[in-house]
């Protein structure tokens, strides 16, 4: 199910989102991160690494940007456990905890999504720029893309995820 969701969002990203101009081209949101950030928090770090790398590679194949997203996804996979650890509740994550607005709250999702997409987008922009004199503009573009992506992830979670039913006593 998770794999199918990831594949779907990669197709969406490649066919639709990537062709859209956000803020006159100042931002390039990476919406394929949306399903990737929904991987269960207690998963093994190899699962995160494998999921993100596969997603990045698939997007590379779809867009013809061979290596670009794979590199960014690998860098994100290294950083993601740190991000999750930084925003973990005092007692730690529960096995059933999901990184959703209904599970850990909008604030948690917004912050973790922003940091994750900031790392990812900045990596993509910097690698694409490849020149030192373009790094400033690339960093700014990465920041705007990250903000856009994080906001869209929160909104999408509200729109697409179902609120868990409360148990009746």
């Amino acid at each position: 199910m998770i794999a199918a969701r990831i594949a779907l969002w990669i197709i969406l990203q490649a066919l639709i989102v990537n062709g859209l101009l956000f803020f006159g081209g100042a931002a390039a949101p990476q919406l394929h991160l949306f399903p990737l950030l929904l991987i269960p928090l207690q998963s093994n770090k190899f699962v995160w690494l494998g999921g993100l790398a596969t997603g990045g590679l698939a997007l590379d194949i779809a867009l013809g940007t061979y290596g670009l997203h794979l590199l960014a996804a690998t860098i994100l996979a290294i950083c993601l456990p740190v991000i999750h650890g930084a925003f973990a509740p005092r007692e730690g994550y529960e096995v059933s905890d999901m990184g959703t607005v209904f599970g850990l709250g909008p604030r948690w999702v917004l912050l973790t999504s922003f940091l994750a997409s900031w790392i990812y987008c900045t990596a993509v922009e910097l690698i694409s720029a490849s020149q030192f004199h373009l790094f400033g503009a690339a960093t700014l573009r990465g920041l705007i893309s990250a903000v856009t992506t994080a906001l869209m992830v929160v909104v999408l979670q509200f729109l697409l995820l179902r609120r868990p039913k409360r148990k009746r006593n």
Binding site: G56, G67, L70, T74, I75, I78, I127, S128
Partner: peptide
């Protein structure tokens, strides 16, 4: 294993990128 996997993925990524992107 994790460190090796990360290094391998970075290596693959850079190789792919520089193989396919002449400008980059």
């Amino acid at each position: 294993g994790y460190v090796l996997a990360v290094l391998a993925l970075l290596g693959i990524g850079f190789t792919m990128y520089f193989t396919h992107h002449g400008a980059g």
